[in-house]
Amino acid sequence: MRNRTTARTRKGTGRAVVALVAALAAGAVAAPLAIAAASADPAATAADGDPDDLLLPTPEVPRISNSAYAGFQICGSPQGDPLVTSGSPTLAATLESVAPPGTVETTEPGPRRKVVFEVDTLAGAEVLRKQLTSDTSHDAAYQLPEGKLTDGDYRWRMRVKDGNTVSAWTAWCAFKVQRG
């Protein structure tokens, strides 16, 4: 009789351990999601509710590099404004990967969203405004043509359009061009 009681106790303890592990795993998954939702951009979270909202989440992690094959410098970094040593830098940002409210995201290959890039002098004079179509719903990049930028201080930003929906602009990303 004692062996059966010990076996039942072990079995019950095993079930309790499994239940505890499952609860901890669920909490580990839910906590980051709750934190992310709480710290999300208010404009992005507002777009999740009302069917009349016509906002996409603002693109994230604006970055710039010397060329299409160089490493990226992150905008707004504590190390200061990015320094570009070529006349043809690449601008990029991460787009949200979920279809806007009321639409269905497809898995078909091909162009996804229109992406608008703006480049100004640091004083605010427009240098370039370019609208492209992103090949993915995750990232957008644009390499400026050679000769558009001379040495000096600039800033750039971008936003995404999908039909009648549009994101807010990213924050301006200041950068310096210094060739030679």
Results as ranks from 00 to 15, higher is better:
residue 154 Y to T: 01
residue 20 L to A: 14
residue 33 L to I: 01
residue 9 T to C: 07
residue 123 A to W: 00
residue 40 A to F: 04
residue 174 A to F: 08
residue 83 L to H: 03
residue 136 T to Y: 05
residue 96 E to W: 10
residue 123 A to L: 00
residue 58 T to M: 00
residue 175 F to P: 04
residue 116 V to I: 11
residue 176 K to N: 09
residue 61 V to N: 09
residue 81 D to Y: 03
residue 133 T to Q: 02
residue 54 L to A: 09
residue 4 R to T: 07
residue 147 G to M: 07
residue 134 S to V: 02
residue 69 Y to N: 12
residue 78 P to C: 04
residue 109 P to T: 07
residue 15 R to Y: 10
residue 70 A to G: 06
residue 30 A to L: 15
residue 104 V to R: 01
residue 108 E to H: 12
residue 88 S to L: 04
residue 19 A to C: 06
residue 15 R to V: 13
residue 108 E to I: 10
residue 106 T to H: 03
residue 44 A to Y: 03
residue 67 S to F: 04
residue 147 G to I: 02
residue 160 V to L: 02
residue 51 P to E: 06
residue 54 L to K: 02
residue 66 N to H: 01
residue 176 K to P: 04
residue 56 L to I: 03
residue 132 L to C: 03
residue 110 G to K: 11
residue 50 D to M: 07
residue 91 L to V: 07
residue 178 Q to M: 05
residue 146 E to C: 00
residue 166 V to W: 02
residue 168 A to G: 11
residue 7 A to L: 11
residue 180 G to L: 01
residue 73 Q to D: 13
residue 6 T to A: 14
residue 74 I to V: 15
residue 107 T to K: 05
residue 4 R to C: 10
residue 36 A to D: 14
residue 177 V to D: 00
residue 139 D to I: 10
residue 49 G to Y: 11
residue 180 G to A: 10
residue 52 D to W: 01
residue 48 D to E: 14
residue 53 D to Q: 11
residue 128 L to D: 11
residue 55 L to C: 00
residue 42 P to L: 03
residue 45 T to W: 08
residue 142 Y to I: 07
residue 173 C to D: 07
residue 32 P to G: 01
residue 132 L to D: 08
residue 69 Y to F: 12
residue 78 P to Y: 06
residue 2 R to A: 13
residue 39 S to R: 15
residue 156 W to D: 04
residue 72 F to I: 08
residue 109 P to V: 09
residue 100 P to Q: 11
residue 94 T to E: 10
residue 58 T to N: 07
residue 125 A to D: 13
residue 167 S to G: 05
residue 167 S to E: 09
residue 154 Y to E: 02
residue 163 G to S: 00
residue 164 N to S: 13
residue 65 S to M: 08
residue 112 R to K: 15
residue 89 P to R: 05
residue 178 Q to S: 14
residue 66 N to D: 15
residue 23 A to T: 15
residue 127 V to R: 07
residue 52 D to S: 13
residue 49 G to D: 03
residue 19 A to R: 13
residue 6 T to M: 14
residue 28 A to Y: 11
residue 19 A to M: 13
residue 12 G to D: 00
residue 171 A to S: 15
residue 103 T to F: 08
residue 56 L to M: 09
residue 74 I to Y: 09
residue 37 A to C: 07
residue 30 A to K: 05
residue 27 G to E: 00
residue 53 D to C: 08
residue 39 S to H: 14
residue 141 A to Q: 14
residue 138 H to R: 14
residue 114 K to F: 10
residue 116 V to W: 07
residue 25 A to T: 15
residue 130 K to P: 08
residue 64 I to A: 01
residue 105 E to P: 03
residue 59 P to F: 05
residue 127 V to H: 10
residue 134 S to C: 03
residue 146 E to A: 11
residue 124 G to K: 05
residue 26 A to H: 04
residue 138 H to T: 13
residue 40 A to H: 10
residue 178 Q to E: 12
residue 38 A to H: 12
residue 167 S to T: 09
residue 27 G to D: 09
residue 74 I to W: 13
residue 101 P to K: 10
residue 115 V to E: 01
residue 110 G to Y: 12
residue 90 T to K: 04
residue 94 T to M: 06
residue 123 A to P: 06
residue 49 G to F: 01
residue 86 S to L: 10
residue 7 A to E: 08
residue 147 G to P: 04
residue 16 A to D: 11
residue 97 S to N: 11
residue 14 G to V: 06
residue 60 E to Q: 02
